[in-house]
Write a protein that binds this DNA or RNA. Structure first.
Length: 103
DNA sequence: CAAGGGGCTGTCA
DNA sequence: TTGACAGCCCCTT
């Protein structure tokens, strides 16, 4: 197994452990698996998940508390909808990270 | 090996 | 508050 495969798995495990109603930024996820500068990689890992994945990828947003999809896109709506169902409040397209960031 | 492009970020005007 | 920019660094061509 390559090291990038291992990193991918670390990211999956961490994302899978984010509690409902909480969120992390891409950079945070990267830091917590030991690679602080790999925020963009985290994004591409989540992007390449199968459609039927059980992973709560929607609990990962950018550092500004905004969804990183173009507003109005299908993916954007799905992510926002799932988060709202879990109790995450959006104000003008933004999440208050002070309140909802995981720990 | 080079080039292009990402679900990013922090800084600054 | 927004937008532009420059770092960042991995993966695919």
């Amino acid at each position: 197994m390559s090291s990038s495969e291992a990193l991918k798995e670390s990211i999956w495990l961490l994302v899978a452990s984010i509690p409902s109603g909480k969120v992390l930024s891409y950079g945070e996820v990267a830091s917590r698996v030991g690679f602080p500068k790999h925020a963009r990689y985290v994004g591409s890992v989540l992007k390449n998940l199968p459609n039927n994945t059980e992973l709560p990828w929607h609990r990962v947003v950018n550092a500004q508390g905004r969804v990183s999809f173009s507003i109005g896109s299908a993916a954007y709506r799905i992510q926002v909808q799932r988060l709202e169902v879990e109790g995450v409040k959006f104000k003008a397209e933004r999440i208050d990270m002070k309140v909802h960031a995981w720990r």
